[in-house]
């Protein structure tokens, strides 16, 4: 049992690396990070340079994924679109996680009517078909990237809140919380020093899966024309162009579609891998 101070983390990493699907997911996600961080290293052309001589050209050496209806390079647009997708995914999930943590900690810790009120609010939020809510709000506020991030975040925190609440309920009955109380620790100290750090592992898993969900919603919104607005590239709005030209330009639909599929799958595999590797119930102390 005795080992370095990081042995718990090393254990976790070893289990994660043994899971091939999780490793595949991690590779996909890391690759996307690199693409999003250095788009110019992967795109040879300016993503918004229009060239009327090259409209809807099939994949070639110069344009590996072909060109779109305005003669722009699809690969370059997708590479720059990756950045948008990642940004939206992370910021929206960050907002959702933050709200979920606050609501879940307060509901679980204080219990009684506070818990009742907050959890009924969660139930109400879950009753809305969230995609239509997002559609309505975006239609009202206008489709800017900031609005998209905020609205996705504000409509997807309920799962996190329930998760954190459940963790808090079980953690606050543990002896180390009683011990902290006996030492004279106040509620805030107990919440931030004793409950929150122990509730972080499951919320990390939730957030990983949440990024995938947010990317999917952003793509859908962009596809419907009320997400990321042209000329800013996004996988969703490339697909829109692909839909209009699907009979003679398959590459315009297939590649962004594949990108979304692989990205979402990557996040899911990674998230599930983290969950399996971190779950102490499978560990057998």
């Amino acid at each position: 049992m005795a080992a370095g101070a990081t042995s718990m983390f090393r254990d976790f990493l070893r289990r994660l690396l043994k899971n091939r699907l999780a490793v595949a997911g991690a590779v996909v996600v890391s690759f996307l990070f690199v693409v999003a961080a250095y788009p110019s290293a992967f795109a040879r052309h300016d993503p918004s340079r229009i060239d009327v001589r090259k409209i809807l050209e099939p994949p070639s050496a110069d344009h590996p994924l072909g060109t779109d209806e305005l003669g722009r390079d699809v690969l370059s647009r997708m590479v720059h679109g990756a950045r948008i997708s990642m940004e939206v995914g992370f910021v929206a999930t960050g907002i959702a996680t933050a709200i979920g943590l606050v609501v879940g900690l307060i509901a679980g810790f204080y219990g009684r009517w506070v818990d009742g009120v907050l959890m009924r609010f969660v139930d109400i939020m879950l009753c809305f078909p969230s995609f239509f809510l997002i559609l309505a709000v975006i239609a009202f506020l206008g489709p800017s990237i900031i609005n998209i991030m905020a609205v996705i975040g504000l409509t997807s925190w309920m799962g996190a809140a329930r998760l954190v609440r459940a963790e808090t309920l079980s953690l606050k009955e543990r002896d180390f919380v009683s011990a902290a109380r006996a030492q004279g620790a106040g509620n805030l100290r107990i919440i931030f020093r004793h409950i929150l750090p122990n509730a972080l592992a499951p919320i990390l898993v939730w957030a990983t899966l949440g990024v995938a969900g947010a990317i999917l919603v952003e793509s859908s919104l962009s596809f419907l024309g009320i997400g990321v607005q042209p000329p800013t590239p996004s996988w969703g709005n490339i697909l829109t162009a692909g839909k209009d030209n699907i009979e003679f330009a398959w590459w315009l639909s297939v590649y962004p579609g594949l990108a979304i599929l692989v990205t979402v799958l990557g996040y899911y595999l990674l998230g599930e891998g983290i969950q399996d590797a971190a779950d102490p119930r499978l560990k057998g102390r």
Partner: peptide
């Protein structure tokens, strides 16, 4: 509270 303390049964769940 500083004058009254407690030692728990379960040495696992009693330490954060």
């Amino acid at each position: 509270r500083s004058k009254m303390q407690i030692i728990f049964q379960d040495p696992y769940s009693s330490l954060n």
